[in-house]
């Protein structure tokens, strides 16, 4: 059966340290000041009754990726395991995908093409996990195949309360946030 890669992010454990950003930056040699991942900190309520959510975010590698549909050259495409990639050789930097992405996950690389999270496909193909998953000091990031019911990610989604972000965009995102 084909794989469907997904990332499950346990917001109850995330301390917002940005180690995922550091690991992604060095692993993928992302040109500064750009990063493929970002952190969201939300504090709600009023002193002293407060609630905080911290989320590590990146490309959602959607099942219905709008960035792929709008790409005029076919650079944005769905690769193996449902991973959404940009082929820099085909990308003209027109930014249609940037406009189409509801998550603001993409940026123009200084060399002229659009860049974003690849789920570290070069590592997955070697049987490793994405760099951010392997570095997380709290182990709040989980990665695996949702088509395999025995995978860690499948089990987590069965046993825990989770949310997708902006589900109303209809993109079927593959980042799952545990609460």
């Amino acid at each position: 059966m084909a794989k469907r890669y997904a990332m499950v992010i346990d917001t109850t454990l995330c301390v917002g340290c940005k180690d995922c950003l550091m690991a992604c930056q060095t692993e993928n040699n992302v040109p500064l000041p750009f990063f493929r991942e970002w952190l969201v900190y939300l504090t709600t309520g009023e002193y002293p009754d407060l609630h905080r959510t911290i989320r590590s975010e990146r490309c959602h590698h959607c099942d219905r990726p709008p960035c792929v549909g709008v790409c005029p050259t076919g650079a944005s495409h769905v690769d193996s395991g449902g991973i959404v990639l940009v082929d820099p050789g085909k990308c003209t930097g027109c930014k249609a995908c940037i406009a189409a992405c509801p998550y603001n996950a993409r940026f123009v690389h200084p060399e002229g093409y659009v860049d974003k999270c690849t789920f570290c496909i070069h590592r997955i193909e070697k049987g490793l996990k994405p760099a951010c998953v392997d570095v997380c000091p709290t182990r709040c990031l989980h990665f695996g195949d949702l088509n395999d019911p025995s995978s860690e990610v499948s089990r987590l989604l069965k046993s825990r309360r989770w949310e997708n972000l902006i589900p109303e965009a209809g993109t079927k995102p593959q980042l799952y946030f545990l609460y």
Binding site: E27, N29, V30, P31, L32, P33, E111, I121, H122, K126
Partner: peptide
């Protein structure tokens, strides 16, 4: 704009030094 390896001098998204 400083990067150890000059930031993305290779175009393949499967790029990795591993």
């Amino acid at each position: 704009s400083w990067n150890v390896f000059g930031g993305g001098s290779k175009l393949d998204p499967r790029f990795g030094y591993g």
